[in-house]
C-alpha cells in the first residue's frame, strides 16, 4: 500500500515538474535560457525505479513536450535505483545533488546533457517547493522568478485545458 501511494505521488510530482517547466519557459528567464540552449530534438526520461512511474520529454526547439509512449527510445535517461529514493527527491526531502552523491540514480547518455536537465529540475523545484525546503535541498541560486501561487494557478489552469 505504502509503495503504491509513493508511486502515485511520484507520478503526480513528475507531471507537476513538467508542467512547471512549460510554464516557467515564459516566466523564468533562467529556464527560458536553459531550454534555448538545449539541442533541438533532445529527449530525456526520468524513471522512478524499474517498475515505477516515469516522465519522458522531448525539446522540439519551442516547447518541452511530454512523450506519452513510455517505450519510446530516449537518448538521456535518469533512472532512480529504487522507488523509495525517488520519493524522497520528489517530496523535497533531498535535492538532486545529494541524490547524486548517494548514488541514487543511474544516468545513460551524455552527462553534460543530463546536467542541463538537473538545472531545469532545480529551477522547477525552486518554484514548486516552499523556500524553507529549497534552502535546505537545493544549491544556492536566484529565488523564484514569480510567486509559487501564480505558478500553481497557471498549472491548474493548464491541466484543465489538457495543455501538458
Amino acid at each position: 500500500m505504502k509503495r503504491r501511494l509513493q508511486a502515485v505521488l511520484i507520478a503526480a510530482a513528475l507531471r507537476l515538474v513538467h508542467a512547471a517547466l512549460v510554464e516557467l519557459q515564459e516566466l523564468d528567464p533562467a529556464v527560458a535560457e536553459e531550454l534555448r540552449r538545449l539541442p533541438v530534438g533532445i529527449s530525456y526520461a526520468i524513471y522512478a525505479g524499474y517498475c515505477g512511474p516515469s516522465l519522458l520529454v522531448r525539446w522540439d526547439g519551442e516547447r518541452l513536450s511530454r512523450i506519452s509512449d513510455t517505450s519510446h527510445p530516449v537518448k538521456n535517461t535518469l533512472r532512480f535505483k529504487a522507488l523509495a529514493i525517488a520519493f524522497r527527491l520528489f517530496t523535497g526531502q533531498i535535492g538532486l545533488a545529494h541524490a547524486y552523491a548517494q548514488h541514487a540514480f543511474t544516468l545513460s547518455g551524455d552527462i553534460a546533457d543530463v546536467m542541463r536537465l538537473a538545472r531545469l529540475v532545480n529551477r522547477a523545484e525552486v518554484h514548486l517547493f516552499p523556500s524553507i525546503v529549497t534552502r535546505c535541498i537545493l544549491p544556492e541560486q536566484p529565488g523564484p522568478a514569480v510567486s509559487p501561487l501564480r505558478i500553481y494557478a497557471r498549472i491548474f489552469y493548464g491541466f484543465l485545458k489538457s495543455a501538458y
Binding site: 545533488a97 547524486y100 546533457d113 546536467m115 538537473a118 544549491p139 541560486q141
Partner: peptide, 15 residues
Amino acid sequence: ALNDGALIVNPRPML
C-alpha cells in the same frame, strides 16, 4: 564547466 558532472558535488554551488 557548468555541464561537467563533477560540479554537482562541489561543497559550494557555482553558477
